[in-house]
Amino acid sequence: MRIRNREKPFGIEKPVTARGQIVIIEDRCKGCGFCIEYCPNDVLRLSDKYNSKGYHPPYVAHEEECVDCGFCQMNCPDFAIFSVEVESGEREPAPAESVKR
């Protein structure tokens, strides 16, 4: 049965996920954009600035959305990005539709 897609499910228990902090080693980046493409929670964006090689590195636009899944790290061909778990905590869940890929 189709269930209603609510903006935010409510309830007494809030969802708990890991929270990640993203570290970007800008000078290694060649601006391929894989990390941005593969991030399931849309955390990263391409920045306007240039690195020493003359590419646009990504920047962290929505750190609060990072769940430390490590997809950016696994996809980066140049080992220029990684995430570390900082804490676990309650999150407001995103609507189901936007999570579905």
């Binding site: 049965m1 269930i3 209603r4 897609n5 609510r6 499910p9 409510f10 309830g11 228990e13 969802p15 708990v16 996920t17 890991a18 399931p40 769940v67 430390d68 899944c69 999150r91 869940p93 995103a94 609507p95 189901a96 999570v99 579905k100």
Partner: peptide, 20 residues
């Protein structure tokens, strides 16, 4: 379930809560 980063609507609770 605790480590899963993906949160979605819970069908059993008719979308009124979440699950992983």
């Amino acid at each position: 379930e605790d480590v899963c980063p993906q949160i979605v609507s819970d069908e059993f609770n008719m979308g009124l809560s979440f699950r992983k």
